[in-house]
Design a protein around this nucleic acid. Structure first.
Lengths: 213, 213
DNA sequence: TGTACATCAGTGAACGCGCGTTCACTGATGTAC
DNA sequence: TGTACATCAGTGAACGCGCGTTCACTGATGTAC
């Protein structure tokens, strides 16, 4: 009885006491997630290493399980987080431009040599798609949600830009962008790489009705 | 002196003696390569396991190094072999059809639900691109050669089919096909999957001037 | 023809290392009284 | 205010397993004479 009373007291007071610790924990978890999305972009979901994530977050690997029940749970959350960052990237590139210029800016950015190299900061899709079929279905569900959101954004932009069949167009655009960047990153020489990118840019420009820059 | 003489004799006779053994060795190496390309399609270059390749070829893993100096060399040769199979697949789907029907057949096959599932028999590109940036540059060179050959074939077909700007069109087509199938395989539910495929099919049909089937 | 010997693809055990996970412990931050 | 005690994020060593690679050995296929 006394034990139960003490437990209750601790429990109730606990909420007050924990507030700071909880915030602290949330911050370090966020740091871990940040590093995890970085790892996924650089090495793909199956290339994410628990110890590497922890050490980059300034921690030792043993502490991992205070935040995530397993590596796979981290991967799932990191996939979701990466897609949010992809959407944020879309906003950053397109905001405060006219629809047509926004569309052009996104296409140009996506197919630029800078984006090819900026694996850590760029769109997370090309870095993940290859691995995703071999990943938890939870992670893939999250990916599906993120993909749907991105599709919606692009579609909305295309409607505003006066592109007809925007839903089809948005899906097709994302597919070609992802495919072209994936291919370009797989190739070695600058010639082949640049050709893949510029050819896709020309083809896309033509079908969405943008003039050559 | 006598030792050198004996060595010479063995060496010369050796060629004769080895002929059968050599053929045998070539056959088992081919079996290993077949299994290796299968593994790459299923699990990506980084998912290829030496022991798994060997056991599927009916051998024990220790014998691997009688055929390849290292796992990475096998990966490089398997990447090249996989791309040859991809080109063969293109021939198989398009041969003895008129250019326009051949083009349509390839697009339809590539974006079909069967191809989505037929990871082992289908085009090897979607299964590899994600991993390739993290693979030997030798393997990537080989990939580049195979990609160039496929691009050429598609371009030639497009010229014959009367598509204008065939070089750009072929590159764009491959990029979208690869991107769409990669995305579709990454997604879970049938709805999203099918939508990605059919939207890309519609978009491609439109831009290469094929009517809906 | 038969016996001794050479070759080498293939065997299977062992090694070493990376990596996810577990666990006993610490130390900073708090509460109780 | 000060001392005893509770909590729990984080530490760091250890475990277990998968996997690429090595290595001493085998046995089938041949040659030598």
């Amino acid at each position: 009885v006394l034990g139960i009373l003490l437990y209750e007291v601790h429990h109730i007071k606990g909420r007050e006491r924990m507030r700071y610790a909880a915030e602290h924990k949330v911050r370090t978890k966020a740091k871990m997630l940040t590093e995890a999305t970085r790892a996924i972009r650089l090495h793909g979901p199956s290339g994410l290493r628990v110890e590497q994530v922890m050490s980059r977050a300034g921690l030792t690997h043993g502490g991992f399980y205070a935040h995530f029940p397993s590596r796979e749970h981290l991967v799932a959350e990191a996939v979701a987080e990466a897609l949010k960052q992809g959407a944020a990237l879309f906003e950053r590139v397109t905001h405060d431009r006219s629809p047509r210029e926004a569309l052009r800016a996104y296409i140009n950015y996506y197919l630029s040599p800078e984006h090819l190299v900026a694996v850590e900061a760029g769109c997370p899709l090309p870095a993940m798609i290859g691995d995703l079929p071999r990943v938890t279905s939870e992670a893939r569900e999250r990916f599906g949600q993120g993909f749907a959101r991105l599709h919606k954004r692009v579609e909305t932009l295309m409607v505003a830009a006066g592109v007809e069949d925007a839903s089809v167009g948005a899906s097709s655009l994302i597919a070609e962008l992802v495919g072209a960047v994936s291919l370009a990153r797989a190739l070695v020489g600058p010639e082949q790489t640049v050709e893949v990118l510029t050819r896709s840019r020309l083809a896309i420009y033509k079908r969405v009705g943008l003039e050559d820059a």
